[in-house]
Design a protein around this nucleic acid. Structure first.
Length: 836
RNA sequence: GCCCUCGUAGCCCAACGGCAGAGGCAGGCGCCUUAAAAGCGCUUCAGUACGGGUUCGAAUCCCGUCGGGGGCACCA
């Protein structure tokens, strides 16, 4: 009865701050030898030490941590702590993605320097991370807004510039009028600014780009290395985003023009069905091809397009419009002259900005043909109704018709045949294009890395010499709210002035800053030595820790950060700086924390406040709730889970630890109760394998079972002093430390151990304890369970078969029917198949 | 429209192709209590969205349909 009394005692509070202090003072979570072997510590000479590099996407300091942060860092912390306990030298770094727009907007609103808001928030978040008990190695700490960091961002930019991978060009780009900057393609979601939701505008501007398109094929090919290690949907998203399509380039001569115009088509088999030719109205080509008498009509059309928003323009059900340019293109396969139009349904920056229109077999071309009253000619017989009559293009494969020498061929065969024909005649060739565009990286904002380029009238774009890096942001003399499309740095008149490093003449700095996705495309390389001064990252540290073993973060970065980081890794590899081409071996995307089915976010309001939850339930219970709610990838509806339940369980564990007497400390476990040990080790076996599989929610369930089992062993079994009980409770506490570090260390101390449990080791499963002498064998007849037999675990298939057939229940179920087959899976299962 | 994912008790979720239910929440009953809360113990609840197929055997593999979530979308 006394145990019952004990259990009803209210549980004392854990001194959280004290534990944080203990961990800090003892350097509990620091990896060993970040860049070289630690003196006095054994490490295999061949460098094959077991190491684990666990990275969670670093936070943006937008305020205090919120529920979403708690989830990511809970998940990655479990992985890091598990690896540490199982003997891996583990690096779990932290840094801040501290350049970016919100800081600048906050600074404008409050009339202070963006730095202040940023670093204040970082301090708040750092304290919150400690309160959450996340096992970071704080020596890795970096902030991308520190000159010591962005200096190397500039260095990398110049490296890519030298490699020809960074270039400036004038092109139509996405402009967000609210955020007052251009945006990369990846930052425009359905025509709207990813950050503020404002409809983007199209502007012709000269901007810096990274040539990520050069890497399109490698970004696709190297996905083979990621299969099975990255979630399939992320790979699919990137595949779609890169958007490879294969077909042919075909040159069309234009009547009265020397230079032919090249088009891309995925359907060279339909070449004979081209009845007109279309160029993008906003491409220079339109103005080149227009005849004088149609010039005014074209200008009117282009002017009208200016009033169309990107969102309207992208609507695919919009009526087709266009204007005849007065010129004619010549179809290279049949010499036919077809009229040239300009339209906004052709995109200036995809393919060549021009296309051959085959209305019979392409819906968009057919819609345009109908609108302009142009002919429709079927060249592939698909057996469907005539597109000219139905208005529905037939895109399927079929048999070639009206295509000269190719008539009668299946279109699938005609396709390569026509490509061969084009190549032989020198008017085209097989070709691949990608939907992916180059990465637009310049931003017309202040709080970012200055682009380290000097514009000289004579020398053009000149990179800032390495010994002059970093190009620091000006401290004063600039405006955060400049006029028109000028950048804030453009107003820093003193800062702008610089002599050309090449010719010494007065010149001007570039006034744009870099997209913060440049910063994040390589930060994981710098963590092992964030103070390194000889380069962006320490080669020794990179050699020891990279690539990242397990990367954890949200899937909203599928086509942004994750794609950029993959590209940057390949580019730096090509520069000879990295020994690998993929930065993240394994990727886990955690879900979102939602409330009553509604997403929580800054714009929609954080419906649940993390600090309030921690205040009410404690950090451990919040963490356990996050993990136990479901698989890491799933969203958590906070309304559907129970932090109170987690508190209850954690208290049960602590009472258990209190109940185990000091007298059993150091007792030989082998003398413990055999049944208890069997139960404990059976659970530990499953806990270990689920942990390895990343099924953290299931691990919690098993730990709860283990808790119940141990409590029952105390109440109705061998009692609290039995060595088997101590063994079980200690194993429970060690495993718990991955999820609830405060409770675990508190319990570990109660059990009479020195801190910290994080420095102990993962329980070793004694497999000999979990093999059963006897097992229950299920006997099925036609797949239905008809009998259960207690059999020796080592029974032979023949014996088991005979035993099954002898059983009364089976004989009854079989009756007079003929036995066709007996499947024996000794010792657990027998299935008897009867004739039907 | 194309691609990817997920549909298991009232809810969150488990289940190497082998007995559908481990764990939690909620609900019910009980113990404790003068009483209530807390705590503790016990316990009800689905045949796996639907329809086919493969198999001795399917929640699991394949095809189709419906529904939820996500991505892309005038990309030639």
């Amino acid at each position: 009865m006394s145990e019952h009394e004990d259990r009803r005692d209210t549980v004392d509070e854990i001194d959280l701050d004290q534990w944080v202090k203990v961990w800090d003072e003892r350097h509990t979570f620091e990896a060993h030898g970040l860049t070289e072997p630690e003196p006095g510590r054994d490490e295999p000479a061949d460098g094959r030490e077991k190491r684990s590099y666990i990275v969670s996407m670093y936070p943006y300091p937008s305020g205090d941590l919120h529920m979403g942060h708690a989830e990511v860092y809970s998940i990655s912390d479990v992985i890091a702590r598990f690896d540490r306990l199982r003997g891996y030298n583990t690096l779990n770094p932290i840094g801040w993605d501290s350049f970016g727009l919100p800081a600048e907007n906050a600074a404008i609103k409050r009339d202070l320097h963006p730095r202040q808001w940023t670093y204040d928030n970082i301090a708040v978040q750092a304290a919150s991370f400690k309160r959450l008990g996340v096992s970071f190695d704080w020596r890795t700490r970096l902030h991308t807004s520190d000159p010591e960091y962005y200096r190397w961002n500039q260095w990398i930019f110049l490296k890519l510039f030298d490699m020809g991978l960074a270039y400036r060009k004038a092109s139509p780009v996405n402009w967000c009028p609210k955020d007052h900057t251009v945006l990369a393609n990846e930052q425009v979601i359905q025509g709207k600014c990813e950050r503020c939701g404002t409809a983007v505008e199209r502007r012709n501007l000269t901007q810096w780009f990274f040539r990520i398109t050069d890497y399109a094929q490698r970004l696709l090919d190297d996905m083979d290395q990621l299969k099975g290690q990255w979630p399939e949907d992320i790979l699919a998203m990137q595949r779609n985003w890169i958007g490879r399509s294969s077909g042919a380039h075909v040159d069309f001569r234009i009547v009265g023009r020397d230079e032919p115009v090249r088009v891309f088509t995925t359907r060279p088999d339909t070449l004979y069905g081209a009845t007109f030719f279309v160029v993008a109205a906003d491409a220079p080509l339109a103005r080149e091809l227009v005849t004088d008498e149609h010039r005014e009509a074209l200008e009117t059309y282009i002017a009208a397009l200016g009033g169309t928003s990107e969102i309207e323009r992208m609507a695919s059900d919009r009526a087709k419009t266009g204007v005849f340019l007065g010129s004619y293109a010549i179809n290279p396969v049949n010499g036919e002259q077809i009229p040239v139009y300009a339209s906004d349904y052709v995109l200036a920056d995809y393919g060549t900005g021009a296309l051959m229109a085959v209305p019979a077999h392409d819906q968009r071309d057919l819609d345009f043909a109908k609108a302009m009253n142009l002919p429709v000619r079927k060249v592939v017989e698909t057996g469907e109704d005539d597109p000219a009559a139905t208005g529905v293009a037939t895109a399927a494969r079929g048999t070639m018709v009206g295509s000269g020498e190719f008539d009668g061929l299946p279109s699938a065969e005609a396709l390569p045949a026509i490509i061969a024909h084009l190549e032989k005649s020198g008017v085209g060739e097989g070709a691949i294009t990608y939907r992916l565009r180059d990465w637009l990286l310049s931003r017309q904002r202040f709080w970012g890395t200055p682009i380290p380029i000097i514009h000289c009238e004579d020398c053009g774009e000149v990179g800032v010499p390495e010994d002059q890096l970093p190009v620091r942001l000006p401290e004063s003399g600039f405006s955060l709210k400049p006029d028109a499309s000028q950048s804030p740095l453009g107003t820093a008149t003193e800062w702008l002035k610089v002599d050309c490093p090449k010719c010494g003449k007065p010149a001007q700095r570039d006034t744009d800053t870099m997209d913060t996705f440049v910063d994040s495309s390589w930060y994981y390389l710098r963590f092992p030595n964030p103070d390194y001064t000889e380069g962006p990252f320490d080669p020794e540290g990179v050699k020891r820790w990279l690539p990242v073993d397990h990367y954890i973060g949200g899937k909203e970065h599928a086509n942004l950060h994750l794609l950029y980081a993959r590209f940057m890794t390949k580019a730096l590899h090509d520069a000879g700086l990295l020994h690998f081409v993929e930065p993240f071996k394994r990727l886990t995307n955690q879900g979102q924390v939602i409330m009553d089915g509604k997403a929580m976010s800054k714009s929609l309001g954080n419906l649940v406040n993390l600090q309030e939850q921690i205040g009410q339930y404690g950090p451990d219970a919040v963490r356990v709730t996050m993990i136990f709610a479901g698989p890491p990838e799933d969203d958590i509806d906070w309304a559907a889970v129970s932090p109170a339940g987690a508190v209850k369980w954690l208290n049960r564990v602590r009472r258990l630890a209190s109940a185990v007497p000091a007298s059993s400390l150091g007792a030989a476990v082998a003398t413990g109760d055999a049944a208890v040990r069997r139960g404990v080790h059976r659970l530990l076996d499953e806990i270990t394998s689920k942990m390895e599989a990343g099924r953290q929610n299931v691990v919690i369930a098993r730990l709860m079972e283990l808790t119940t089992l141990l409590q029952q062993s105390i109440d109705n079994g061998p009692g609290a002093a039995d060595p088997a009980v101590r063994e079980g409770v200690e194993a429970l506490v060690v495993a718990l430390s991955c999820f609830a570090p405060f409770t675990a260390d508190d319990s570990w101390a109660k059990l009479g151990h020195e801190p910290s449990v994080a420095t102990s080791s993962w329980p070793v499963v004694d497999k000999s304890l979990i093999v059963d002498e006897e097992v229950t064998c299920v006997v099925q007849v036609n797949g239905k369970v008809r009998a259960r037999l207690q059999v020796p675990a080592a029974i032979t298939e023949d014996d088991l078969k005979a035993l099954s057939l002898d059983s009364d229940a089976v004989q009854k179920a079989v009756g007079d029917a003929k036995i066709v087959k007996v499947i024996v899976r000794a010792p657990k299962l027998v299935n008897i198949a009867l004739a039907r």
